[in-house]
Design a protein around this nucleic acid. Structure first.
Lengths: 342, 342
DNA sequence: AATAACTCAACAAACGTTTGCATATATTAT
DNA sequence: ATAATATATGCAAACGTTTGTTGAGTTATT
């Protein structure tokens, strides 16, 4: 069980001091080429690794980025994380990932541990119960860059990387209209998160633009889960005048809706069309495959990380929002021959 | 942009020293109740957070666990990580997650950064190209507990938490035999990872125990991906005497096989039965749903973390293997009425 | 009353790195 | 030859926490 090699050890072996070793390893111009070479060779030979705890302490911050997401076992978040990691590692940073499980108290706990561990920045996607953003202020107050992605606060005082959810929703609904669906219902998420609000607005706007009426009872708020989608679908189909298409703010509830319809032997897409949101991996594995709005998670992750590095370099804080345009992936659940009545 | 509060700040405010503050916060018996109370109140008021970088440096190790996995966008790994986090956070630890993307060089890079960041322990699931375990020795040599889970080295000198893959495979194949399938093919993973070797052995043993012949050409090695499963299935079905069932070491390739069969209008499970491995989320979303072997990832994660804490507490290293029994989840892809010939 | 025992808090060092400043040697200019 | 400059290295402090040791003050013991 060997003790870890430090620059002191290297210094002793070369009859010099820690400062010289440190400078040599960092290619400081004040150190001679020969010395630099000797040091680097010895460091390699002795398998020296910088103690980044010590260097973080000295520097006042670490080369670590904290990421808080609701959960990692969602394709979208897993992809975002991959994107973040890619950029982070390129810059010699590593990443601490925290799952909030959509719970406010866990978010707060994670904020505290991240601050304690001296992260250089924090990237957050909010849980959908979070409406109080104060706990996050602690981070900014300490001068730690704070960047929201995907699920961001509704106010304008932060840095956000988000999808243009409204445009995505609009595309989805427009597509359903193009396919000839007339009574399009919406499974909506909680309004306190702007992205769900935006999806709903996109839905409404698309209907309006095409002269279709907005019916309150066709908009069902739910918790985005499969079960909720199933129940919502059941409820909707019990109406005297049921919808002929569903645009869901979540793939999971879209799947729930699909499962209900299959149980009831209602044909998809012939009788009812379905479009989901997020392009989860499973959407191309169902029968029929589910049309969905892709949010290119990896890109969002990369952007978020890049913005963090920008933010770290600059010393003025400029709130801003970067909006990425999502893409509609059309699949079987909404692809029917257009039935025109007129 | 407020400066961070330190114990020095608190000490100054209470006309005492940092050591007293530190001890008070840790309920050291040598500090009076009154003093302890005063300190804690002030700490709360000033929103003091321990600087864990400093405390890690002082302690010689941090309260962080490093986790290296091939990728996080797999249900199994996502669940393992959830399990690890749960136990870690209970113990006041946090978790750094690194994705190796199944690349050896990334594993090595991650090992180095984890050592640099002074993690207290490392939990690893190997990439499937890793056959040289030496890079991991560095970790143990520094006295850092190293625990493998799921994809572990084949040798006996490490601590591992693994599934009883052989038993899982045996159950899967036995089930296929029970269902009346006679020519069962196996989509095998690389032999250098014990878990794939074990799955193959379970397959072979089950066949033997039931008096079925082992045919080399029914065992196809592949890279576990969907595309490979598709191609393997295509190849197998071209034989003059094709298999009537597939036991795949991966759900993804099982899905690939299923997709090929559907394309060819070969009925599952009537003509060909399919069983996968891992119980990925999508297996219950396909048509028909795919029978699979569940590895209860969350449990593995929890075990791994617990073993790490045990290991940290003890000072003798005892190589050991903890084996969890996987469970067969029977679904539509293998559930047919038994056809007996005899 | 003198000493022992105890309680509480301060002192100081250490963890490993980085960096401003000082110093010593070598080089060049005058 | 001497002063000015350049080059290369050493010294020491700092980051914030923890902890062994010391010391002052108080209470108990004889």
């Amino acid at each position: 069980m060997g003790k870890r090699v430090t620059i002191q050890d290297l210094a002793k072996e070369l009859n010099t001091t820690a400062s010289t070793i440190s400078r040599a390893l960092h290619d400081h111009p004040g150190i001679s080429k020969t010395m630099t070479k000797r040091v680097k060779e010895l460091a390699l030979k002795r398998n020296y690794r910088v103690n980044s705890v010590a260097s973080s302490l000295r520097a006042g911050k670490s080369k670590t980025i904290g990421v808080i997401v609701p959960m990692i076992n969602r394709d979208f978040f897993a992809n975002v994380i991959s994107g973040i990691e890619e950029i982070a590692f390129q810059n010699g940073f590593n990443v601490i990932i925290c799952q909030s499980d959509n719970k406010v108290e866990k978010e707060i706990q994670h904020i505290n541990t991240l601050i304690s561990s001296g992260v250089a920045g924090v990237l957050v996607s909010l849980g959908f119960e979070t409406s109080d953003y104060k706990p996050f202020d602690k981070i900014s107050q300490l001068g730690i860059p704070l960047i929201f992605f995907d699920r961001a606060p509704s106010h304008e005082k932060s840095i956000k990387i988000v999808n243009n959810d409204k445009a995505g929703a609009y595309k989805a609904v427009q597509h359903l209209i193009d396919m000839g669906y007339k009574r399009i219902a919406h499974l909506a998420g909680p309004d306190n998160l702007s992205l769900y609000k935006d999806r709903k607005e996109g839905y409404i706007e698309a209907l309006k633009d095409h002269g279709l009426p907005i019916e309150e009872k066709l908009i069902v708020s739910h918790n985005l889960k499969r079960e909720a989608g199933y129940e919502a679908m059941k409820k909707l189909m019990k109406y005297k005048n049921p919808p002929d298409a569903i645009f869901s703010a979540s793939d999971y509830s879209a799947l729930g809706a699909l499962l209900y319809l299959k149980e009831e032997r209602i044909k998809v897409p012939e009788e009812v069309g379905i479009v989901g949101f997020s392009n989860e991996g499973f959407t191309k594995l169902t029968g029929p495959e589910i049309t969905s709005v892709d949010q290119h998670g990896k890109e969002i992750g990369k952007y978020s990380a890049k913005v963090f590095f920008e933010e770290m370099a600059s010393d003025v804080f400029i709130p801003r929002t970067i909006i990425l345009d999502p893409k509609l992936i059309i699949r079987g659940s909404s692809l029917r021959n257009k039935k025109t009545i007129d």
